[in-house]
Simulated scan of single mutants.
Amino acid sequence: MSTRTFRITVRGSFDGLTDDQRAELLAAAPEHDMLRAEFTVEGHLTYDLAARPFFTFRFLESGETEEDILDATARAELAAEGWLTERGYGFKQLKSQAQDLSQAPLGKRGRREAARAEGRA
């Protein structure tokens, strides 16, 4: 059985931040800039609190079956909630979206590489 890679996005908004918490997040904003967004196993947080109260966590998970994506999504949501709660940040409206990369359509370059690989097999 082959391993599948899942990309999971957990979105929400900060809620009821204190002035100190807001200042803390603004000070750390360069580390969480949307231009540096990436999917990681531990989860990568991005936000632009100066513009809006929304945040996004991006997680990279794996599994062996299509059904594993449900468990991976649940783990990602719990990890995002845990990170926020551990730091005392209020949040609301968490929503998750997951993609199984084995089911993602290939772009032109990917199709060309797949065709070459089939020709060599």
Rank of each mutant, 00 (worst) to 15 (best):
L25W: 03
T73H: 04
T5K: 10
L25N: 00
R58V: 00
L106V: 01
L84S: 10
F39I: 01
D20N: 09
A37H: 02
A76F: 07
E113R: 15
E24Q: 12
A74V: 14
Y47K: 04
S62C: 03
R36C: 08
K108F: 09
E77W: 04
A51P: 01
A23I: 05
T3S: 15
A98W: 13
L84A: 09
A23W: 07
W83D: 10
D15L: 15
K95T: 12
D15M: 12
Y47E: 06
V10K: 08
L106E: 13
A28F: 03
A74N: 03
S96A: 15
D15I: 02
E77T: 13
R4Y: 02
D68I: 01
D15C: 13
A28P: 00
Q97G: 14
M34A: 12
S96R: 08
T65W: 05
L26N: 03
L35I: 00
E67I: 00
A98P: 01
A117Y: 01
Q103M: 10
A104V: 07
S62W: 13
F55T: 04
R11W: 04
A104D: 02
G90V: 08
G90N: 14
T46H: 01
T65G: 04
R36K: 14
A23D: 11
E42V: 03
I8F: 12
Q103A: 15
P105K: 09
L78Y: 06
I69G: 04
E24T: 12
Q103G: 06
Q21N: 03
D48E: 11
S62Y: 05
D71G: 15
S2G: 03
L35E: 04
G88A: 12
A104Q: 14
F55Y: 11
R87M: 07
A80R: 05
L106A: 11
Q21E: 15
G107C: 01
E113G: 00
G88C: 14
F55W: 07
S62E: 15
G88Y: 13
L45V: 09
F91I: 02
A28D: 14
H32T: 01
T65Q: 05
R87S: 05
H44L: 08
E42G: 06
D71I: 14
Q99H: 01
I8P: 11
R58H: 12
A37C: 05
F14E: 10
L26V: 00
T46Q: 07
T65L: 06
Q99R: 12
G63T: 09
I69R: 06
F14T: 03
E86D: 14
P30L: 03
A37W: 00
R4G: 11
L60I: 01
G12E: 09
D71Y: 13
Q21S: 08
I69P: 02
A28Q: 15
P53V: 06
E81Q: 15
A115P: 02
G90Q: 10
R11K: 06
L49K: 01
